[in-house]
Simulated scan of single mutants.
Amino acid sequence: MKRLTRRGTLKALAGACLVASVPVARAAPSLRIGIIGAGHVGSTLGGLWVKAGYHVMFAAQSLDQPRDVAQSLGPLASAGTPAQAAAFGDVVFLAVPYRAIPSLGPQLSPILRGKTVLDATNPYGFRDGAIARIAATDGAGMTTQRYFPGAHVVRGFNSVDMSSIASEAHRTPDPLAIPIAGNDAAALKQAAELVTAAGFTPVVTGDLASARLFQPGNPGFELERDAAGLRAALHVSP
């Protein structure tokens, strides 16, 4: 066994300190995100996720708007059809008018089987017609789930205005809380990761039926609080 001299010991220690001082590169996020809808909601959240290092594909009925959004965000962003975005994403984010859900369901359900669908849509009777009335009665989360029976639907990012999402992302010291609800633990974990990556604190309100708490016309809708304040207002345990 080779015996270290005093000089050799100091040299080894210096080398170890040098290695320790070199910053370790953070791994790029592994989740890919497909966004159905390239308007204000989709582009705002997609921009935050691209900034956080996620690969994001934007989609809409016409490719013009998704392409414009993707080009503005750089190489991590791309554009495609709704079917392509659904196939691309490990998580698929719905950012469309609620009236589009009945037509998107049959089109995308086979592709989304087993995937997390993060649903930010909101039903409004004046705009969305009969489906909005069903969602008001049955709950938007439960209604969306019926149209995507093989997917794991999580409600989230529907209760806070996008102007606040854009201005309050990564605020300190008390991040804005985003309520989320779903039936599948793994899907909730993925949704919580994306809430955190966008610069907010996720607050799980419970199963998918509990998403009614923060849809339009209910106490959690447009409620902007930190995590403790949101839990207190919605009577949700930590």
Rank of each mutant, 00 (worst) to 15 (best):
R3C: 04
K11W: 09
K11R: 06
A14W: 00
A14Y: 00
C17S: 09
A20W: 02
S21P: 03
P29L: 14
L31R: 11
R32A: 06
G34Q: 07
G34D: 10
I35G: 04
H40M: 11
L48Q: 11
L48R: 04
W49R: 09
K51V: 03
H55K: 15
M57S: 06
Q61Y: 07
L63C: 14
P66M: 09
G74M: 12
P75R: 15
S78W: 02
T81N: 05
Q84D: 11
Q84G: 09
A86K: 00
F93W: 04
V96D: 01
P97W: 06
P102A: 13
S103W: 10
Q107F: 06
K115Y: 12
R127W: 10
G129K: 05
A130M: 08
A132R: 02
A135Y: 00
G139S: 03
T143C: 12
Q145P: 04
G150K: 10
G150N: 05
A151K: 00
H152R: 08
G156P: 07
G156A: 11
S163V: 05
E168R: 12
H170Y: 14
T172A: 15
L176G: 06
A177M: 15
A177E: 05
D184Q: 15
A185H: 15
K189E: 10
A191Q: 05
L194A: 07
T196C: 14
G199E: 04
V203F: 11
T205H: 06
D207C: 01
L208Y: 03
R212L: 06
F214L: 11
P219R: 14
P219W: 08
P219D: 03
G220K: 01
E222P: 04
D226H: 07
A227W: 04
A227S: 13
H235N: 15
